[in-house]
C-alpha cells in the first residue's frame, strides 16, 4: 500500500484536524501576529537588532502553520508536500541570489560630464 493509495481514500474521511483544532490554530496565528506588531513598538528590539530576526522567525512560523494545517500539507499526500516545498525552496534560492547580485552594485556616476 503506497502513500498514494492512502490519500486516495475519500476526502474528508482521513485524519483532518477537527474544527476545534482549526479555531485553536487561528488563535495561535492571531497571537503571533499580535506579537509581531507589538515587538515592532519596542525600542529595545530595534536597537539591539533583534527585531528583524524575530520577525523572520515569527512569520516563518505563521507561514508553516497555515500551509501545514489549513492547507493540510501535514496530512495530505506527500506528493503535494514535495511539489510545494521544492517550488518554495527553489524560489527562495533564486530570490536570495537575485537580491545578493543586485543589491551589490556601485552607483558612482564618475566625476563630471555624466549627463552631457
Amino acid at each position: 500500500m503506497t502513500h498514494g493509495a492512502l490519500a486516495a481514500a475519500d476526502h474528508g474521511e482521513h485524519e483532518h484536524p477537527s474544527e476545534q483544532k482549526y479555531i485553536k490554530i487561528a488563535i495561535i496565528l492571531t497571537i503571533i501576529t499580535a506579537i509581531e506588531v507589538a515587538i515592532y513598538y519596542i525600542d529595545w528590539m530595534h536597537d539591539s537588532g533583534a527585531l528583524v530576526p524575530a520577525l523572520f522567525i515569527l512569520s516563518i512560523g505563521k507561514f508553516l502553520t497555515v500551509i501545514g494545517y489549513y492547507m493540510h500539507l501535514k496530512f495530505d499526500s506527500p506528493l503535494f508536500r514535495y511539489m510545494f516545498i521544492a517550488a518554495l525552496v527553489g524560489s527562495l534560492a533564486v530570490i536570495g541570489a537575485l537580491i545578493a547580485l543586485l543589491r551589490v552594485h556601485t552607483i558612482d556616476f564618475g566625476p563630471g560630464g555624466f549627463i552631457s
Binding site: V94, L98, L101, L102, H105, I107
Partner: peptide
C-alpha cells in the same frame, strides 16, 4: 530606469532566470 532608482540589470536577471 536608473534615474528613477531602478536598475536595468534587474531586467537581465529576471529575463535569464
Amino acid at each position: 530606469e536608473y534615474a528613477a532608482g531602478g536598475d536595468p540589470l534587474l531586467w537581465q536577471h529576471l529575463f535569464w532566470v
